[in-house]
């Protein structure tokens, strides 16, 4: 599976309050509505800048803070196809895999805002098409690949009724 789109760049320590504020997330399960407010406290116009398939690209510790799963869900419903960062906070990382949002760890200093990217999850390579360079991706643990390839944890449980990594 190849993902393709342009990069929207953010800094270090982007927390889940910034991804989707508590002002919105406590009052609805309508993810389309939450998606309109994604990253609003960092960039009020972010939602309108997204072309479906685009990537969020960030620095260290992306997704730190609250455990809210509305964060990856709002990102997915805003049309973002993957998040690329130098490192991720662990609850957010698990939530992404569970909800089926690919998370990619690599050296994002080599990516500028607006760069056109293509990501090959199977081969573990990120092509920066604008710069003509390939970046190495940290591989996902086996159990996470299994959950992601089943289509998320809901699908995994529908299939097996419990955790099954054999």
């Amino acid at each position: 599976m190849e993902l393709r789109g342009k990069a929207h760049k953010f800094g270090d320590d982007v927390n889940t309050d910034y991804i989707i504020s508590g002002r919105y997330k406590f009052k609805t399960l309508d993810m389309k509505e939450l998606a309109r407010h994604v990253m609003e406290d960092l960039d009020p116009d972010f939602y309108s800048k997204i072309t479906p398939g685009d990537f969020i690209v960030a620095g260290r510790n992306f997704g730190c803070g609250s455990s809210r799963e509305q964060a990856p869900l709002a990102i997915i419903h805003a049309g973002i196809s993957a998040v690329v960062a130098k490192s991720f906070a662990r609850i957010f990382y698990r939530n992404c895999i569970n909800t089926g949002l690919p998370v990619i760890e690599c050296d994002t200093d080599q990516i500028d805002p607006g760069d056109e990217l293509a990501i090959d999850l199977e081969k573990g390579v990120l092509h920066n098409l604008t710069k003509g360079i390939d970046l190495k991706i940290t591989p996902l643990p086996k159990v996470m690949l299994k959950i992601l390839s089943d289509g998320g944890l809901v699908e995994h449980f529908k299939k097996y009724g419990t955790f099954n990594f054999d």
Binding site: S67, R68, E69, N95, L153, T162, F163
Partner: peptide, 14 residues
């Protein structure tokens, strides 16, 4: 430790 909602659902069931 903290988890998200889908991990919570998996914990509730299993």
């Amino acid at each position: 430790t903290g988890v998200g909602s889908t991990d919570l659902a998996a914990g509730l069931i299993s």
